[in-house]
Amino acid sequence: MDNAIAVAPDTHAEDHHHAALPQLRHHFETEEQQREAGTFGMWLFLLTEIMFFGGMFFAYLLYRNWYYDAFVVASNQLSIPLGGTNTAVLITSGFFMALGVWAAEVRKKGLLVLFLVLTIAFGAVFLGIKYVEYHEKWEKHHVPGASYDIKEFVNPHAYGLNEKPLPPDMAQKTQIFFSLYFAMTGMHALHMIIGIGLLFWLLARAQRGDFSSGYVAPIENFGLYWHFVDIVWLFLFPLLYLINRHPV
């Protein structure tokens, strides 16, 4: 037996019959193998997302150390009630997504549809609150660019703010904070908008019964994406909203 591959009799094909199920495509041996391959692939994609957001987190880390005073006053412009509510809203959305995965696993179509709708609803509430926050920044000219206004940072007491007045050059550095704020929360919001789009597609398929007979992978892998977007926010909230909330 010098060539095992050539000599070994191929009894495999007769051993079992490959049914044409979406959870067991013909190029996989077992459902477990297909599932693990899918999970592995999804995680590889999420690792690229870590690197994508990671670059912005690094820029934040660097500039926060360089222009700490500007970061503190700019961060205090953000609303803890709105940001905190949004954190809870996003966690709730993720909770319903997790329940959706469970509903698909135990093949309850009605519950799956309900949980997907709730996931979408809470995701939409998050984006709504985000819009309110963005709008306020727009009105106060705190969007970086030509019409950016540093008056509240140079002369905070005139605007009822209990902050240390910044020299104009440091006050200009608040633009860096807001650039990172809009870049990071904006990319996060874009991920949520894409996610909600995908959720509507999954909802239509769930309604059709695609995920109620043992084929859970699309729900499960989308869940991974949705939870990943949650995790990004779990870091964004303390880093952007809570830099220095304990003025001495």
Partner: peptide
């Protein structure tokens, strides 16, 4: 702040993300 965020992230990864 980072310790709390990391703890939350680990919980999400281990259980929500299975």
């Amino acid at each position: 702040a980072l310790a709390i965020a990391c703890t939350k992230a680990v919980i999400v990864i281990l259980f929500f993300m299975h």
